[in-house]
Each structure stands twice: as structure tokens, then as C-alpha cells.
């Protein structure tokens, strides 16, 4: 994909919030909310891969699931091809469902063990009301597209290896020819030797079909491999967002720098010059968070302003966004 082709905005997310109620037991009258995603804005260009990184529990999966409307967002807008799908009721989202899909993290839990491969791959089309003959034909086409054989179609998921299952999951995601796919850590449960195969396949598919990916991972080096642009999340907030190369060379946010320092560096000279930044302090839970920068409990640049107001996202250089009072 050339840079020129990636200019149309497919999805625009504005101030997305997803809060979950927290139970304090049956009799308690106390209400708390867990702010899994708290005001995230970004846009996805058609045909690009947008990487989303951050530690476990920072809300990456929640962002992905909200974008494909598995959750109804608490607030915010999700403009999909110009239409705001955030406030739509389940019935009204239905026409958009065939255009958005998801690849899941755990290839062992994402395939129904009681269904054959062919009914798993055909399910999205069946649910969307495609005619049976077309489904059968498309399923055969898909199974070869992901590098499996058509005599695998009558088998059950437990007969396959992790990598093969993930291919089945990818075939299912491709079934209705979606424009947008959320890849939620699609390779973190796979062996190293198979990770590369799956990544290459995802890239080839993008090349051929022009699909837009939201690629979620907790590992920056993995994301940098496949993404055109990267967003860094911390505790439900996007803290930095830039082109992959820009983020690699000119990262500014203290959290991004900490993540970056954990990425092993191939060049021994550079490796010797750089030092590992070890994060101090604990990740606070996003339940009833105090005001101010979410990262301040672990930030070594923290100043007085950081405890009072939330830093706004601002553009520090073209296409490079940062939310920090001190840096940039």
C-alpha cells in the first residue's frame, strides 16, 4: 500500500468512553465505575494498520470490542465511514456488522469445540443471511486462502494446532469481506515459529484486500513490526500517538520511553548507549481515579501540574500527538 492510498479516513473515534459498573456485593448501595476506556480519540485510515500498545489491563481489548460494537460505549462517537455507530441500538448496528470483524487472542477459546470448521467459518455469513450455496463456495475459497485444505472443513477444532486454529479464526473474520478487522493479540498465544507465519499472512491479506487493522498487543516490538501508526495506551487513556518510525526515533512520553527501553536493541553500540528504564510504583486500578495525569504515580518527570489537570492530547509535530505537561 502506498502512502497515497492510505488517506481516506475509515473510522474516526472521538472521546470514546467505556465505563463498567463495579459490584460491591448484593446489599451494598455503593456504586463505583471502572473506567476501562476514558476519553480516547484517534482515526483509522483505510488500508492501514494502527497498533495499540500498553500494559495488561490498560483497556486495549475494551477499545477494540467497543469499536466493533460488542459493547455500547458510555460516551463518545465512533464514526464508521461517516456514520456514528456509537449510539445505535443492536438492531440498527446489524447492517454494519458484516463490514467489521475481529480476530481473537486465544485460538483455543475462540472456536466452538462442537462445531465443524466449515460451520465455524460459514457462521458470520449464515447470521448475515447469505444464501447457503454462496456460503459453501466462499468457505472453500477461504480455507485455501488461509493455507488449509478443504478436507479440513469437516473436522473439529481440537484436531488442529494453535497456528491452524488461528488461521481458521482469520478465515471466519474474512468471510463477509469486512473492511475493518480488530486483531486482539492474535499471535501472543502462538509459538514463535508460527507467529511470523500468521503476521505475514495478515500483511498479505491487507496488501490484497485493503483491509484496515486495529492491531492490539502488549509488546511494542511486535506492533512496530506490522503497524503504520501506533497509539500508546495507559490506564484507559491514549498518551502518545505517531507514525511508527517517528515513535521509534522521537518518542516523547515518559511511558512510551519506558516501553521502548524494554525493547531489545539489535545494534550493540546503540544498546550499550541506551539504558533500561525500569518503571517504579504500581499500576493503579482505573476505579474512581483521582484527577491529573494517570501516569503520575510512576513518572519521574512529575511536577505539580501533573497532579491537578489531565494533560490534553496535542500535536507536537505533524501527525505526532502527545499528552504530557512536561515533555514535548
Amino acid at each position: 500500500m502506498t502512502e497515497q492510498k492510505r488517506s481516506r479516513v475509515l473510522m474516526e473515534v472521538r472521546d470514546l468512553q467505556m465505563h463498567f459498573p463495579v459490584n460491591h456485593g448484593l446489599l451494598s448501595r455503593k456504586h463505583s465505575v471502572l473506567k476501562a476506556v476514558d476519553g480516547v480519540s484517534f482515526s483509522l485510515l483505510a488500508g492501514e494498520t494502527f497498533g495499540l500498545v500498553g500494559e495488561s489491563g490498560c483497556g486495549k481489548t475494551t477499545v477494540g470490542r467497543t469499536l466493533v460494537r460488542l459493547y455500547k460505549p458510555t460516551a463518545g462517537e465512533i464514526l464508521f465511514d461517516g456514520t456514528d455507530i456509537a449510539p445505535l441500538a443492536e438492531r440498527e448496528v446489524l447492517p454494519y456488522r458484516r463490514r467489521m470483524q475481529m480476530i481473537f487472542q486465544d485460538p483455543y477459546a475462540s472456536l466452538n469445540p462442537r462445531m465443524t470448521v466449515s460451520s465455524i467459518i460459514g457462521e458470520p455469513m449464515r447470521l448475515q443471511g447469505f444464501p447457503e450455496a454462496e456460503i459453501r463456495e466462499r468457505v472453500r475459497e477461504l480455507i485455501s486462502q488461509v493455507g488449509l485444505k478443504s478436507d479440513h472443513l469437516s473436522r473439529y477444532p481440537h484436531e488442529f494446532s494453535g497456528g491452524q486454529r488461528q488461521r481458521i479464526g482469520i478465515a471466519r473474520a474474512l468471510a463477509t469481506r469486512p473492511e475493518f478487522i480488530v486483531c486482539d493479540e492474535p499471535i501472543s498465544a502462538l509459538d514463535v515459529s508460527i507467529q511470523a507465519q500468521v503476521i505475514n499472512m495478515l500483511e498479505e491479506l491487507q496488501e490484497k484486500l485493503g483491509i484496515t487493522y486495529l492491531f492490539i498487543s502488549h509488546d511494542l516490538s511486535m506492533v512496530s513490526h506490522i503497524s503504520h501508526r501506533v497509539g500508546v495506551m495507559y490506564l484507559g487513556h491514549l498518551v502518545e500517538m505517531a507514525d511508527m518510525r517517528e515513535l521509534y526515533t522521537h518518542n516523547l512520553h515518559p511511558y512510551t520511553q519506558a516501553l521502548m527501553s524494554a525493547v531489545p536493541i539489535a545494534d550493540p553500540d546503540v544498546a550499550a548507549a541506551s539504558q533500561r528504564i525500569v518503571l517504579q510504583g504500581d499500576v493503579p486500578a482505573p476505579i474512581d481515579p483521582p484527577p491529573g495525569c494517570p501516569f503520575r504515580s510512576r513518572c519521574r518527570y512529575c511536577t505539580g501540574a501533573c497532579a491537578e489537570t489531565m494533560p490534553e492530547m496535542r500535536e507536537v509535530s505533524p501527525g505526532h500527538f502527545l499528552a504530557c505537561h512536561v515533555k514535548g
Binding site: 458484516r98 481473537f104 487472542q105
Partner: peptide, 12 residues
């Protein structure tokens, strides 16, 4: 489970 999510994703 994720296979239920996958089906909901297609409008089940």
C-alpha cells in the same frame, strides 16, 4: 467465551 463473542459480532 470468545466464540460467543465472535457470533455476537456477526449479529447473533
Amino acid at each position: 467465551s470468545e466464540y460467543v463473542l465472535a457470533a455476537r459480532l456477526s449479529g447473533a
